[in-house]
Nucleic acid binder design. Structure first.
Lengths: 131, 131
DNA sequence: ATTTAAAACGCAACATTGTTGCAATTATTT
DNA sequence: AAATAATTGCAACAATGTTGCGTTTTAAAT
């Protein structure tokens, strides 16, 4: 049973094609990159596909200040009920790619007077391949 | 000596007006909010002003997945040479505002094989005012 | 296997967000 | 006060994202 059926959405040709692009990359990619990777395509359908994928917990947005919006695949724990990530985003200053890195324990945070429920981390530096 | 002169840019009427909007808020605001706050204005000039402010270390972008881009003021340590933030972004699920919160110590991160140089944190939960 | 109903697609048209070039204006320097 | 350099405002455009609607595809039901 493939990921799409598993997430309760129809496994159409187009969706499988888009998903394949993500599976080919181990880092976050932009909508532009997707558009270049799939052949003939409809921009509107792509936007709708991405929106659906985000809602269903297949993709998540990766936002780094002053950069183009990127997308990456979620872990299996994400669903329409919500995203649940035990990973951080790591931008390599050398190859410029943004990787999702699973971590054993996401650092916790204490804020006087604030009730912290979730935490999202974007780090940068030099990645494994470039280091 | 005002902030603009301090950062080596001309203290024009327009820039002072934009800066005033940020000083009125203790949370991150969208370009839309700025546009509504300043009276007569030119969209293009506003975009250029924001770009300059970011370059000069006066503002920084605050990006939360699936949300409108927001901007907030930097601490004094930021300059054209780079941004240096000892704070995190906190989105309140109740009032929906995003606050920049200074922290004593930004949590550190170990990543096998990766050289972590900087780290940026977006947390969410309930803020002081709503808690 | 065929029918049927729901979901997804593709097109057109549009809304929003952000950029570039250039002439006119404003702020600083001499 | 004049000269110089930075900033502004306009027009035009580029990029990004959305909505409505008729057609096609998918999955389920006969």
């Amino acid at each position: 049973m493939d990921l799409l059926t598993q997430k309760n959405i129809r496994a159409t040709t187009f969706r499988k094609e888009v998903l394949a692009v993500f599976l080919e990359h181990d880092y976050a990619i932009s909508i532009n990159t997707i558009e270049k990777s799939i052949g003939k395509h409809d921009r509107i359908t792509l936007y709708r596909t991405i929106k659906t994928f985000i809602e269903k917990g297949i993709l998540h947005e990766v936002l780094i200040p002053n950069e183009e919006k990127k997308l990456a695949m979620c872990q299996s724990e994400c669903s329409s009920d919500g995203h649940q990530h035990d990973h951080i985003h790591f931008k390599c200053e050398a190859c410029e790619e943004v990787y999702c890195k699973e971590v054993d324990r996401v650092p916790q945070l204490q804020l006087e007077g604030f009730k912290v429920k979730s935490i999202e981390i974007n780090a940068s530096g030099i990645c494994e391949k470039c280091g």
